[in-house]
């Protein structure tokens, strides 16, 4: 594990409980940094981070309904896999995904 860790650049985001269960918060970044990141928490307390832009027409995924390991985009209801950022078939597309680490109560994201 440690071999992997050395390659990561973790940034502290928030406490786990700052994230609503089956919901998300927006991590603000300006466009030059690549735009906002959505940080999700599902019912199993697994945390995921995706670029807050739907592969369809850029809808803010952070505002969608979270279920299982997916989020439904609020604009046209595409389903996006939280793990990979891939749109669920038959829709095709992928949004950038960021590695996440939960250490006790602290949530870290590698934003590169």
């Amino acid at each position: 594990m440690s071999a992997i860790e050395t390659e990561m650049s973790w940034r502290y985001v928030c406490k786990l409980d700052d994230l609503p269960v089956l919901g998300a918060r927006v991590l603000e970044r300006n466009e030059t940094e690549g735009g906002n990141v959505a940080v999700f928490r599902n019912s199993e307390d697994v945390v995921f981070a995706l670029l807050d832009k739907c592969p369809h027409k850029g809808g803010p995924l952070s505002q969608g309904i979270v279920f299982g390991e997916r989020v439904a985009c609020p604009l046209h209801n595409w389903s996006i896999e939280l793990k990979s950022g891939e749109a669920v078939a038959p829709d095709v597309g992928c949004t950038k995904r960021f590695p996440v680490k939960v250490d006790g109560e602290d949530v870290f994201v590698d934003l590169r």
Partner: peptide, 20 residues
Amino acid sequence: VDTRQFIPIKPIAADTVATV
């Protein structure tokens, strides 16, 4: 109404546990 949704999280400037 979960008011946390109206407050975006700002990323902390310094990397807390960063190793390169």
